[in-house]
Amino acid sequence: MTDVLATLSRDRIFYLFVAPFAALTILFGVWPILLSIQVSFTASATALRPNPTYVGLANYAAVLADPIFLASLGRTLLYTLLSVVANLAFALGFAILLDSRLLKRGSLFFRLAIFLPVITPDVAGYVVWRWLYDRSFGALNAFLTLVGLPPFGGLSSVDTAMLAILIAELWHHAGFYMIIFLANLSIRDRALEEAAHIDGATTWQRWRYVILPQLRPALVINSVYALIQFLKTFTVVVVMTKGGPSDQTNFVSYYAYQLFDQARYGEATAMATILFAIVIVLSLTAYRLGDREPGQ
């Protein structure tokens, strides 16, 4: 007991330092999350009252039996998979290009051009993309018509809406993954490549067996970040499609928000908890897989 007291007094000033950080974390992080989980076990109509009616897992059962939610979850996972692959492939490809000796000059310009969308407010970026895709105002279809190509359905067609927002989101996010690959490429051991070259390795073999394994840290970080990023895709839907056409872009985040807007608090928070669980499980899995030594 005296030990504890001694520690406390010696560390007192650190408690002072951490207090505002802890207060904000608890007030606007831990508390709302616990509140959200609590609400997910109550009947929506009573959720906001001081003594809500607890309904056990009824909201979760309702959500998991809701065909719109299941379709939405499936589309969210599909969209996440496609986005992660597209973004990482683009970012890695462009990082390799910028890092190569092929581009002696102008590398900074290219890097700035790809990164600028990352710091551009997403609402502004997506508003511009929404109108770029527009059939009457949009530059995209005007251009396609000009060069004699068939028009792109963009946001209004069931077949292309998901692709259209995937492109807009890639524009906004890929620069971030690119600079992480670039940072990783710049700290790699170039002596190994020289050695491989002297041993007669082809360019492909050098990339596959010497450089790619050294990019594992960036690949792991980017995969985890991109997974978290695209599982919770929201802003682009609000700005560009409102979930349409025919629910094609009605991802879980947006669907949960719509239910919340209709005061269906119990189901909305149950969805939030389910999505949270998926984010944690998938990102931990990606992290574990990536962290494992090759051949293990």
């Binding site: 974390t25 606007f28 992080g29 831990v30 709302p32 999350i33 509140l35 959200s36 609400v39 978290i228 599982l231 919770k232 929201f234 802003t235 985040s253 949960a256 928000y257 919340f260 909305a268 928070t269 969805m271 939030a272 999505l275 949270f276 984010v279 944690i280 990102s283």
Partner: peptide
């Protein structure tokens, strides 16, 4: 844990 939580769904509570 807070930063793992889907941000848009944190804003609601």
């Amino acid at each position: 844990v807070t930063i793992m939580y889907p941000y848009m769904l944190l804003v609601i509570p």
